[in-house]
């Protein structure tokens, strides 16, 4: 070719006989500097993320003398679950030595109803916002979303007063209601966007067939919403289980959820700290969300991504 481009010129000159015989796929060395850099970075980052998990588990399986030896890298010499048993049944928070078990059951009692109620209300909200808009419905929604960014501290005190006036302050009901309220923005957004993505003709056809608000919701919309329910379920179960602030404010001492009890066991214990028990308690508290995370896999990713991406 006469009009060789200046850009490709250099490499054209470099075209040797070897290249003239090039055939098939480009030769690719197994180790390139690029690959080595990528994988070493990934491994270094992975170690940062995995190290605490490793430490948490190994420490919980060690005995105190072993821990005092001062090597948190070491695997337990004689792994045993003594610390786990103690954390579950008899670890002390102040004078109260009942372990984490009551906190676990409180968390269960809070998480299950809060999850169900908040998801149901949000699903209805999302449905009403998309298919049954009324004057002002979008304004309510906008305030709801904006409100989700406001720090909880702004609402806490007046809500305590309201709960006290209603006579539910310091009960499980109060925590459940609070979780329902503060789960509403994100879940409503989730359901609203999901229902908006469904074909509107379906809703219109049901209207023409004479179905009303609730019939369409239960018989048309819900059966099609399984994926978004799974996402919402994951979001709520982990979110509510992990809550600390609402539990400590609204539940009352008898109803403290697991996170609050865990913090009390570790941070307000009397006497010599038992690090193996502390870590066992931490592992136990983390197990539920970890199980949800590892079982749900991609759904969890979808959940956090859906929570972040606005309509």
């Amino acid at each position: 070719m006469s009009q060789t481009s200046t850009m490709a010129g250099a490499s054209r000159v470099a075209a040797t006989n070897a290249v003239q015989e090039a055939r098939g796929p480009r030769p690719k060395p197994f180790f390139t500097p690029r690959k080595i850099i990528i994988y070493s970075l990934l491994v270094v980052f992975s170690m940062y993320y995995l190290f605490p998990l490793y430490v948490m588990f190994t420490t919980s399986l060690k005995s105190m003398p072993e821990i005092r030896f001062g090597n948190i890298f070491a695997l337990p010499v004689a792994p045993n679950f003594d610390a786990w048993v103690k954390a579950w049944t008899s670890a002390c928070t102040g004078l109260n030595c009942q372990g984490l078990a009551p906190g676990f059951w409180n968390s269960v009692k809070i998480t299950i109803p809060s999850t169900i109620i908040s998801i149901f209300i949000a699903a209805v909200n999302g449905y009403a916002l998309i298919n049954w808009r009324f004057k002002g419905s979008e304004i309510f929604f906008a305030i709801l979303i904006f409100g989700s960014f406001i720090p909880y501290q702004v609402f806490l005190y007046p809500m305590v007063i309201i709960a006290r006036e209603l006579g539910i302050f310091g009960t499980l009901q109060a925590v459940i209601i609070v979780h329902t309220i503060f789960g509403m923005p994100i879940l409503t957004l989730l359901f609203r966007n999901y229902f908006a993505s469904l074909p509107q003709e379906l809703f219109k056809a049901a209207r023409v067939d004479g179905a009303g608000f609730w019939r369409i919701f239960f018989e048309i919309m819900l059966p099609m919403s399984l994926p978004i329910f799974v996402v919402a379920l994951i979001l709520q179960v982990t979110g509510i289980w992990n809550d600390f602030l609402f539990g400590v404010v609204f539940a009352g001492t008898q109803n403290y959820p697991m996170t609050v009890q865990l913090n009390n066991i570790v941070n307000s214990a009397q006497g010599t700290p038992e690090y193996n028990v502390n870590m066992a308690a931490t592992v136990l508290t983390g197990l539920v969300p970890l199980a949800v995370y590892f079982v749900s896999g991609k759904w969890f990713v979808r959940g956090v991504a859906a929570g972040a991406v606005k309509g």
């Binding site: 980052f45 992975s46 993320y49 190290f51 605490p52 998990l53 430490v55 948490m56 420490t59 948190i72 982990t238 289980w241 992990n242 809550d243 600390f244 996170t259 865990l262 913090n263 570790v266 941070n267 690090y275 502390n278 870590m279 931490t282 508290t285 983390g286 969300p289 970890l290 949800v292 995370y293 590892f294 969890f300 990713v301 956090v304």
Partner: peptide
Amino acid sequence: MLYPFALSFIVTGLVWQWI
């Protein structure tokens, strides 16, 4: 990389406190 996000801040804080 994502699993820590599933854990609560309390668990996160206590593990790192120990480390």
